[in-house]
Design a binder for these strands. Structure first.
Length: 281
DNA sequence: CCCGATTCCTGTAGGC
DNA sequence: TGCCTACAGGAATCGG
């Protein structure tokens, strides 16, 4: 038994984090922590030295997700986990050989190991006893993409007088969560909006299209995650992490689906961005 | 407050 | 084949 959840080749964006949550929650919810092994505490923040004794003996109530954070809820507090750029969670049998970059292991009911694998160590494992939504890392987060409050009017209002590129604007966690670099390019292409356009100069109507496109591309990816989960079970763990068919990302020089333009790659906010100069205005 | 630049890190790809 | 460099990206942080 060895199921992989989360990014391997793929950067864990919101759909990958949600897929991870759906994969691990039925196996772990209701189980009690037997022990915790921290092999390398040097992640984005150093793992608290008291984490193992804090978690030992606690019963996991539920695994939730907020933005790209996984929230492991216990009676007395919450374990906040972020997969960063290269993190993945895997459930193994105890005493399975550690792979390089397996940094943390939580054993449940002495038979289920949850392991964090994270080569670049931008991930995060953090214990908090305050409500997680009050934690400094989470308290300023904007709405989830499927929240009713995330709509064209909202974006239009928040963007007023802002001169940042719309691509950076929708990647801003305070505006809306879960839109990473890849899906930002994809969503703006679907909405036919130029990624470099100033956020404050976009109409309500176009912001409606952006909301629809963000939800569409994220939902397709979450649905693909469902397929991935079935594949994990069937193929006993080989990742095969599917991504939504990307229409612009990584396709510089290729013809756009509109058949009129050639996809361009530019740098916006220090990040690679892809768009079609003909159909995105 | 807003926004651009910088920083963390390592696997991978490309040049020579 | 191997060495070197550039690049990838989430998000906190800093400075203007």
């Amino acid at each position: 038994m060895a199921f992989h959840f989360g990014g391997r080749d793929a950067v864990p964006e919101l759909p990958e984090v949600e897929t991870t949550r759906r994969g691990i929650s039925p196996l772990l919810e209701g189980r009690r922590v037997s022990s915790v092994n921290v092999r390398n505490p040097n992640l984005r923040q150093q793992i608290q030295t008291e984490l193992p004794q804090r978690l030992a003996g606690l019963k996991l109530l539920i695994v939730e997700r907020r933005a790209k954070y996984l929230l492991f809820r216990f009676d007395s507090g919450t374990l906040i986990v972020h997969l960063g750029m290269s993190g993945s969670l895997r459930i193994t049998e105890p005493r399975t050989c550690f792979k390089k970059h397996d940094h943390v292991e939580i054993i449940f009911d002495t038979q289920f190991c949850l392991r964090l694998h994270d080569p670049r160590r931008f991930g995060l494992v953090l214990w908090t006893e305050e409500p997680p939504q009050h934690h400094p890392l989470l308290r300023h987060l904007g709405p989830e993409p499927w929240d009713k409050r995330f709509n064209g009017d909202y974006l239009h209002t928040v963007a007023r007088r802002r001169r940042a590129a719309v691509k950076n604007f929708i990647m801003n966690n305070r505006v809306v969560v879960g839109v990473g670099n890849i899906y930002a390019s994809e969503a703006l292409h679907r909405a036919k909006v130029h990624p470099n356009r100033a956020a404050g100069q976009i109409s309500n109507l176009r912001y409606n299209a952006i909301v629809v496109a963000v939800r569409e591309v994220l939902k397709e990816a979450v649905d693909l995650g469902g397929t991935t989960l079935r594949d994990f079970v069937r193929s006993d763990g080989k990742p095969g992490y599917f991504r939504v068919q990307l229409r612009v990302y990584g396709r510089e020089g290729e013809p756009c689906t509109c058949a009129n333009g050639i996809i361009r790659q530019v740098v916006i906010g220090q990040r690679s961005s892809f768009y079609c100069p003909r159909c995105q205005r």
